[in-house]
Amino acid sequence: MEQRLANTLNMTVNEKKFIESALLSDLRVDGRRPFDYRKLSIIFGREDGSSEIQLGQTRVMGFVTGQLVQPYRDRPNEGTLAIYTEFSPMADPSFESGRPGESAIELGRIVDRGLRESRAVDTESLCVISGKLVWAIRIDLHIIDNGGNLVDASNIAALAALSTFRRSECTIGGEDGQEVIVHPPEVREPLPLIIHHLPVAVTFGFIGKENIVVIDPTQHEEGVMGGSMTATLNTNGEVCAIQKAGGEGVLQSVIMQCLRIASVKAADITSKIKIAVSLFYFF
């Protein structure tokens, strides 16, 4: 069953009403104010290109791997970037193993749009031989625990993992000058990806009849909310992607207000990611 429906079914009318009426006086169940983000911690794995994000109760792991493949015919000198999501059944009772559900696909698409359409990763530098060989970067996102707001957590996990990923250096040489030599990491220092900017996703929930806006909803709030909006922004104040897939209607002024708040939060999160990455390289 769908995650959204399952969440609603698990909650009693009392629980829902409690969240709604507490919000009327600007209080949230976990003690936050409507525009407070949960505590974010970023941990990196031993290897390059792996990260584990904890956002409140939500835990997401990100892994980035690279492989040399033939490029797409319409983009002969660009590497590729693909995002795969894995909703583990242990994370939430409503997640089923097997084919990714609607919510998994939507999550993947939001992260994908934010990263790819805004050209955050320089894909042209991933080309080895035009039309023949390029790097295909694969981001795997594993949901370990669902505490709500999987989109933001997954997006941060993807960014953190991408920031620490390094690929082996390739040179063209050999006798005919066509052979590709992949230098193992022991021989030559691997190269990091060229990342132009970090698009950070910030999700808002709209709760109750008055459509009260809350940032970073927990899974209980997700069960109550009538709609949500994810805005992906970078520190240059640019909007990279927005997803508000139906749900309760909101005024245009509210959307713009959300975007302004999101841009402040995105700057916070970006600096957290950057600090975590610099610490990773320091040790």
């Binding site: 640019e238 909007v239 990279c240 909101v250 245009q252 841009s263």
Partner: peptide, 21 residues
């Protein structure tokens, strides 16, 4: 006069986004 669906991709500065929306 309420927005229910909003999808956007590629990047755009916020003030221009407001006009386009």
């Amino acid at each position: 006069d309420k927005v229910t669906l909003l999808q956007m991709d590629a990047k755009l500065p916020m003030d221009i986004f407001e006009n386009v929306m």
